[in-house]
Amino acid sequence: MAPVARIRNVVLDCPDPVALARFYAAIAGGTPQEEDPEWVVLQVPSGPRLAFQPSPGYTPPEWPRADRNGQQFHLDFDAGSSWADVDAAQEKVLALGARPLDLDDQGGKKDFRVFADPAGHPFCLCMIPEG
């Protein structure tokens, strides 16, 4: 089936578009286009275009609650093929201002760790299985 359209942006509401765009640029690469602080675009190299816009009265999503505002959506990032790679990525995102939400791998049953960005959106650092 032919697509009707293609995705142009993944847009995140937040209190500070410039700051959040810079946070994700530090994780995924790219340079935020900051000419308009009301609409900041980040073209992730070899990835999607993320856009950030202010939202009056912004309330961050709650993870893992589904009964009030839920997580709404989340971003997954490939962080490497070993837990050592994920550990190193974890240190970096925490230094950038991320907050841990769920770091329990349940004895190796999960291949990801969950964090919140500075605006409260959940995102995951995922281990890419080798092979």
Rank of each mutant, 00 (worst) to 15 (best):
D111S: 15
V44H: 03
P118C: 03
V44R: 04
D117Q: 04
A89I: 04
E34Q: 05
K110N: 15
T59V: 13
F73T: 15
A84E: 15
Q43F: 05
L50N: 04
V10L: 12
L96W: 00
A88W: 11
L50S: 07
P129M: 13
A98D: 05
G107F: 14
G107N: 13
A25Y: 02
A84V: 10
G107R: 12
P32I: 04
A89D: 05
Q33F: 10
C14I: 08
A5T: 12
Q53C: 13
E130G: 11
Q72M: 15
E35K: 08
F115G: 03
A89C: 07
L12W: 04
Q71W: 14
D102P: 04
D102W: 06
G70K: 12
A119W: 05
P17V: 01
F52Y: 09
V40Q: 00
C126T: 04
A84D: 15
G131P: 05
R22F: 02
E130F: 14
L50E: 08
A116H: 01
P61I: 03
Y24L: 03
P129R: 11
V11S: 07
V44G: 05
S82P: 02
G97K: 00
V41W: 01
A79L: 02
V40Y: 00
D85S: 09
L103D: 05
E130Q: 15
P15F: 03
A66E: 13
F112Y: 13
P60Y: 07
W39D: 05
R113M: 11
A28D: 07
L75T: 06
P37I: 01
A88R: 14
P48W: 11
G107S: 14
E35P: 04
C14H: 03
G131Y: 10
H74R: 05
F23T: 01
D87M: 04
Y58E: 01
F115S: 02
A19W: 02
D13L: 06
D105T: 15
V11R: 02
P60V: 03
L20F: 09
L94Y: 09
G97N: 00
V86L: 04
P61D: 09
Q53L: 12
S81K: 13
Q53R: 10
D76A: 15
V40R: 01
G80I: 11
G70T: 13
Q43I: 05
G29D: 08
L50C: 09
A2Y: 11
F115H: 00
R8E: 13
P3K: 11
M127P: 00
L42M: 10
